[in-house]
Design a binder for these strands. Structure first.
Lengths: 119, 119
DNA sequence: CGACTCGTACGATAAGCATCGTAGTACGGG
DNA sequence: CCCGTACTACGATGCTTATCGTACGAGTCG
């Protein structure tokens, strides 16, 4: 019974525990346009997405940086899966900590996107 | 009948119009502990408060800075009233732009405050 | 093994920001 | 008119951050 099931690949990444997630940190993470966009896309798809799925207006190293900020502030969960790194929203934890907040934020972001350009 | 009603005093301060308020800006403004605290207090009191009403763990110049950030990002409205500077939440504008968001944010902040120390 | 893809690490850079102290302006009251 | 109160302006400082480029590590597939 060594390494039976999912085998998420060797190295794993540091995530804050649910109780460690701070509202200020979440808000800071979402206050960047690139990161807000990532979260919106993650929410829209509803599934885990690899980093490379996103077509962002920044280089790869900057992309890595933004994903790390989102992870370190408890907004997303990241795990390696072979060569890809999968990203998923921490909906369960965020909804438990701050009921309804994530949905309102996403709605607000969608409304704003509709108002301005990218409708 | 000169100077009848409020007379908010000569100089006034630049505020963004409602349509100019950006979600990212609001989130950034609220991602600072001191500013989040100010907003929570403003919401709790429900009325306009002078800057000096707040007992914050920073100096007066830093306090001025935080109020300006809140104003410039459309979170609060500021107006001079004699020697005092009154501050009020822009509830109407925020609720119109991002329905329900402010309340969720305040609830989330309250929950977090209850969980950790300051209950 | 070798090549390719995905993502990271590290260093550099430039900008932003939270903080302070001091000096100054605006207003109201004696 | 002078003084006290309320807040600002300015400059300094040190920390954080968004961005990039290049070089590297980990996995997959031929």
């Amino acid at each position: 019974m060594t390494t039976v099931a999912p085998v998420p690949s060797s190295r794993d990444l540091p995530h804050p525990a649910r109780e460690e997630i701070r509202l200020e940190g979440v808000l800071h993470a979402l206050s960047d346009p690139v990161r807000l966009r990532i979260v919106r896309e993650l929410a829209a798809e509803g599934i885990e997405l690899s980093c490379s799925h996103f077509d962002l207006p920044v280089t790869k190293s900057t992309t890595t940086h933004h994903f790390r900020v989102l992870r370190e502030n408890g907004v997303i969960r990241q795990a390696y899966e072979g060569t890809a790194k999968m990203n998923g929203l921490r909906r369960d934890d965020l909804d438990e900590l701050f009921p309804g907040l994530l949905d309102r934020l996403l709605t607000a972001a969608a409304r704003q996107a509709a108002r301005h350009g990218e409708g």
